[in-house]
Amino acid sequence: MNVKETSEKTGVSTDTIRYYEKEGLIPKITRNRVGNRDIDDKIIRRINFAKHMRAAGMSINVLKEYTDLVDDAKDNTERQKQIIREQIDIMQERKNGIDFAIEHLEYKLAHYDDHMKKIEEN
Rank of each mutant, 00 (worst) to 15 (best):
V3R: 10
V3D: 05
K4G: 11
K4R: 11
E5K: 07
T6N: 05
S7R: 01
K9G: 02
K9I: 14
T10R: 05
T10Y: 06
T10F: 04
G11L: 02
V12A: 00
S13L: 03
S13I: 00
S13E: 03
T14W: 00
T14P: 10
D15K: 15
T16K: 01
I17S: 07
I17L: 04
Y19A: 05
Y20Q: 08
E21V: 01
E21H: 02
K22Y: 07
E23N: 01
E23Q: 14
G24R: 07
G24P: 08
G24S: 05
L25K: 06
I26M: 09
I26N: 04
P27M: 06
K28S: 12
K28D: 11
K28V: 12
K28P: 02
I29H: 04
T30F: 00
T30N: 14
R31M: 00
R31Q: 11
R33Q: 14
G35K: 09
R37H: 03
D38R: 08
D38Y: 09
I39A: 08
D40Y: 01
D41H: 09
D41G: 11
D41P: 05
D41M: 09
K42V: 08
K42G: 08
K42H: 08
K42D: 12
K42N: 13
N48R: 13
N48M: 14
N48Q: 12
F49C: 10
F49N: 07
F49H: 11
K51S: 11
H52Q: 15
M53V: 03
A55R: 04
A55F: 07
A55H: 07
A56L: 10
G57K: 03
M58P: 08
M58N: 05
M58H: 08
I60Q: 01
N61W: 00
N61Y: 02
N61P: 05
N61F: 06
V62H: 08
L63Y: 02
K64A: 07
K64T: 09
K64M: 02
E65T: 12
Y66L: 04
Y66F: 12
T67D: 01
T67L: 00
T67N: 01
D68S: 11
D72V: 04
D72A: 12
K74L: 07
K74M: 01
D75M: 03
N76T: 14
T77I: 09
E78N: 10
R79E: 13
K81W: 08
Q82W: 04
I83N: 03
R85G: 02
D89R: 07
D89G: 09
I90E: 15
I90P: 06
M91D: 07
M91R: 13
M91N: 13
Q92D: 15
Q92M: 09
R94Y: 05
R94E: 14
R94H: 15
K95G: 02
N96S: 13
I98N: 05
D99T: 14
F100C: 06
F100R: 13
E103K: 14
E103F: 09
H104I: 03
L105V: 13
Y107P: 08
L109G: 00
L109R: 12
A110N: 15
Y112P: 09
Y112N: 07
Y112D: 11
H115E: 15
M116R: 06
K117D: 12
I119C: 10
E120I: 15
E120Y: 06
E121S: 15
N122P: 00
